[in-house]
């Protein structure tokens, strides 16, 4: 389980996910891949605050698209502006982000560890 994630070891990942259970799972999965959790935000504001606070200490982010009715795009824009790679994870599938980031990496919920691992590697 960890072999696939070896190249991801030590990466500092920001989680943006409004559902606690899913955020907790993602923390566990990223831990399995050897990543560190740079932060876990449930709202756009929390995420933007966290990005500013982290500065350069952030390597990548996994973004849920719909945060309790609020779209995650301002967070994506902020990451893009800082050249921090990120991916989307959404129950809507690729169609869920086509409006703003049509060609961006998207994984569909629910996803498995190898999918998450491959998607993260493809960001670098």
């Amino acid at each position: 389980m960890t072999a696939a994630g070896s190249s991801l070891a030590g990466l500092r990942i920001l989680i943006v996910e409004d559902e606690t259970l899913i955020a907790m799972m993602l923390e566990t999965l990223l831990g399995t891949l050897g990543c560190r959790i740079a932060g876990s935000a449930a709202t756009v504001t929390q995420a933007l605050d966290r990005i500013v606070a982290l500065g350069r200490d952030l390597d990548a982010a996994v973004l849920d698209v719909n945060l309790g009715g609020e779209k995650v795009y301002p967070v994506a824009d902020a990451l893009a502006a800082r050249a921090v790679p990120f991916m989307f994870a959404t129950g809507y599938g690729p169609r869920g982000v086509s409006e703003r980031y049509p060609d961006h990496m998207v994984i569909a919920k629910p996803y498995q560890l190898p999918t998450l691992s491959r998607a993260l590697q493809s960001l670098f």
């Binding site: 259970l21 907790m24 719909n66 959404t90 129950g91 599938g93 869920g96 919920k109 629910p110």
Partner: peptide, 24 residues
């Protein structure tokens, strides 16, 4: 339909999460 699909997927993700976290 999109919303339903989203909810079902999120629920399954919650179930997946519960399954993983309960094991620990």
């Amino acid at each position: 339909l999109d919303e339903l699909n989203h909810r079902v997927k999120n629920s399954l993700a919650s179930v997946q999460s519960i399954a993983l976290l309960s094991r620990v």
